[in-house]
Simulated assay, not measured.
Amino acid sequence: MSLTLYDAFVPSCQQILGGMAGVIDKAEAHCGESGCEASELIEAKLADNMWNLPWHVRSVWAHSAYVISLLPTGEFSPDFTELPQDWDAMRAKLKRTQDELAAVTPEQLEAIADKTIGFVLGGKRLMEFTGQNFLLSFSQPNFYFHATTFYDILRMKGVPLGKRDYLGTPRIIG
């Protein structure tokens, strides 16, 4: 059985996004139980020169559903708008991402697998990839980086999380 680009990318993104939604629920519950202000968690960063939780939520969208929507254009430029500023907005962004990924078909991704896509930043085309290589060697690592950092920030701030929270629901037999 061969693995399609869709199989290598979309289901794993959906799994981790589901885990992130559960992590948000635990973070919000932690605030209620510990008396911690939501803003203390939402604005937290791993280091002063890194991004906060809203940035990471937007970034998992950008490196999954958003990039797939841009692949047919031949250019990807990061989206620096619309940061979800509270738990409900983060949940909504993750739900929107899940809905957009649910609409993607294997045929759509196979159609762009060999198409050239440029990474554009500040109006400059910095790198070129095939669609497949862009997804698997650029977007997918970025997706996991931002999902992991989101988890790590909350874990660092005392939210009781474990690896199973991060993983979401694995695709098991039966």
Rank of each mutant, 00 (worst) to 15 (best):
E43P: 01
T73L: 13
H30M: 05
V23G: 00
Y66D: 08
S12W: 06
C31S: 04
K95H: 09
L17E: 02
I68G: 07
K26H: 11
G19D: 01
Q98P: 00
D25R: 11
D79S: 11
D48W: 05
Q15F: 02
S64C: 11
R96G: 07
Q14F: 00
Q15N: 03
A27L: 02
S64E: 10
C31F: 08
S69E: 14
S77Y: 03
A62T: 15
A29W: 01
I24S: 00
H30Q: 03
A89L: 13
L46F: 06
S12Y: 11
E82C: 05
P72W: 12
S39T: 13
V23I: 15
A27W: 02
I42W: 10
A38G: 06
D25C: 02
W61V: 03
H56M: 08
L71F: 10
L17R: 09
D79I: 05
L71Q: 12
A92K: 13
L70H: 13
I68D: 01
M50V: 05
I24T: 00
E33D: 13
S59T: 10
G19K: 00
P84S: 10
C31W: 05
I16L: 02
S69L: 07
T97W: 01
M90G: 02
S39F: 05
P84L: 06
N52V: 02
K93A: 09
S69F: 07
